[in-house]
Design a protein around this nucleic acid. Structure first.
Lengths: 341, 341
DNA sequence: CTGAAAGCGCTAACAA
DNA sequence: TTGTTAGCGCTTTCAG
């Protein structure tokens, strides 16, 4: 026989039932807002709950229902992601909505090598998939509702919400061309990320559409860091045939380029037009407000939670994955002007 | 009678026991690395586990043991915290260590009004306590191991790890004075945060120690935002009796001040010395590298997890709370120089 | 060294 | 509308 434990610190549904003078089932019904409870009983239970400060054990609930409302947010821990505007915005958007929807947010800074313990997780949001495709595939095989954001995935049966990076970049560069620029450089982000690769694509597409030749020496590859942006900017500015405009894959890098340009005594924006990407609020300040591409990060974050929530609660598991591409918006401020002739 | 469910998708300890030809108890022992299991049985169980890809249900485990290794990180959702360098660094530090210690990290973007569901949480890290003291007190009353970071709490029986903001600010301003400055302004952060309030204290302390009178018109209160920093900087620069130095409560604001100063045509650092606080990497770039105060954010984050982990696993619940103040470090770069005479 | 069985706190099917 | 009861999957006691 098991020795009865001493008075447990936690108050359970039993205590509530006893105090309310009902069965635990009735208490359970009240907790779960099941309507078939007499008002009188409902009030007694509610009262007992209040008196006892009862909070249902989520573990027991989940064990009993087999359902979990834990949402895991998997963020690949690759170098540099944590210095991005992106990560925090995402966490903010997802965190806020989870809070609102009463979902528990489990944060998983993923080491791509280690598998995630999938048991007990209701759904997973993969914030980009850099080197952790295996984790995603694991989740899919296990049938855990998953959704990928910031990465348009076509070769896997999974819903994804992404930003139209190609379109955004295309529009940005096209705008530059419309202003009269022909010598347009590009400072890329980390090309292992789809976002950076696609922005590069958009850049190339815009040049091509306008019959402007792509010049390799105008392409500067970086890892998104300000340090590499600075190096790129220095090279760019000292080129014999200096570009008149540069499309930079992130605002924080664009700001760096702007700083370097000013240090070098270039007049901005007349001698160098700078186009960013992100709509990072930092771009607003500074002597020349940054023209940039706004991406709906918060919307992406929120939509992903909503969509995942749907997936989690949906009966029909065979729904086709949805693939969403969120449009960007060109934000015209001051840093891009027609080239000085 | 309950209708038997169809074949459940999840493999349970029963399946493992059946395949291994042992009892579930033995399986449980193997899982929990309890040594009293014959090697032969141990191997059979391990083999079955592997074959079935069994992962124990954390909910069942926690229900049975009453223990939880979930760490909740509570971040107050007050305006602006999400634009700070601080928040992301914290999440990064805490997230990484939780990962390493196999703790689940629950992220809780706290609305100060709503109570946290404390059930099932092993421990709580409060990232600052702005308007959510009630939540902290709740946790304490419930006996959940808790720890507060970035806020030195003396009136509550709770461990805390904080930064020596007074000391750091004192040292910074003292350095400015040592350089020969007498007219030193201060742009505060949001004074509802202890960090900002204490930096202000350190500033006042340094002036006092050096017999410099505090001039109210040299104090600019902000909410940490770059926008308010800009306004403050504009006022400051246009003062008839302009300060020769300014101590700014955050690097991102300091950078803003620097930008405004340069736009106004001030020579930096000779006409205005600027001291930041944070050691935000952004301060490194730009024409004049920012002199600032480094605070060990990552260390604070990591230490908090270690300490909490200790609290969680400790038997003796009556240990006195530890209160730790982490030292800061003055990082001398270029933005502070003796005043032009 | 092993296993039967009693919970952990809750939900849900069924009977009343 | 309510209560009884059988689990959910695991740990732990106690008797082999």
């Amino acid at each position: 026989m098991r020795i009865k434990k001493g008075p447990s610190k936690t108050v359970s549904i039993n205590d509530v039932a006893r105090l309310a003078g009902t069965s635990i089932t009735t208490v359970s019904r009240v907790i779960n807002k099941i309507p078939t409870v007499k008002e009188k009983n409902r009030l007694r239970v509610l009262d007992a709950v209040k008196q006892l400060k009862f909070q249902p054990s989520i573990f027991a609930q989940r064990l009993a229902t087999g359902k979990s409302n834990v949402v895991a947010l998997v963020i690949p821990r690759y170098e540099g992601i944590f210095y991005s505007f992106y990560a925090l915005e995402l966490i903010r958007g997802i965190g806020t909505l989870c809070e609102a929807l009463k979902l528990d947010l489990l944060l998983h800074l993923a080491d791509p090598k280690s598998a995630i313990n999938l048991k007990g997780i209701g759904g997973i949001i993969f914030a980009d998939i850099i080197s952790n495709r295996l984790q995603l595939e694991d989740a899919l095989v296990s049938g855990i509702p998953s959704i990928v954001i910031n990465n348009y995935v076509e070769d896997l049966e999974v819903s994804c919400i992404s930003i139209d990076n190609i379109g955004g970049a295309y529009e940005a560069v096209n705008y530059l061309i419309g202003l009269g620029h022909k010598k347009i450089a590009h400072i890329t982000g980390d090309l292992i990320t789809q976002a950076a690769a696609w922005r590069f694509e958009g850049y190339k597409k815009a040049l091509k559409k306008n019959n402007i030749e792509l010049r390799q020496e105008y392409i500067f590859k970086t890892d998104y860091s300000r340090g590499q942006a600075r190096q790129a900017a220095e090279k760019l500015i000292n080129m014999p045939d200096r570009p008149t405009a540069v499309f930079v894959a992130s605002d924080s890098m664009a700001l760096e380029v702007m700083a370097v340009a000013r240090e070098s005594g270039l007049k901005l924006p007349s001698e160098l037009s700078i186009m960013g990407f992100d709509d990072n609020p930092s771009g607003l300040y500074g002597p020349v407000a940054l023209t940039t591409v706004r991406q709906p990060l918060i919307k992406m974050a929120e939509d992903s939670v909503k969509e995942l929530n749907l997936l989690i609660s949906r009966k029909d598991k065979n729904a086709k994955p949805k693939r969403i591409l969120l449009p960007t918006e060109l934000v015209i401020r001051e840093s891009c002007q027609p080239p000085a002739h």
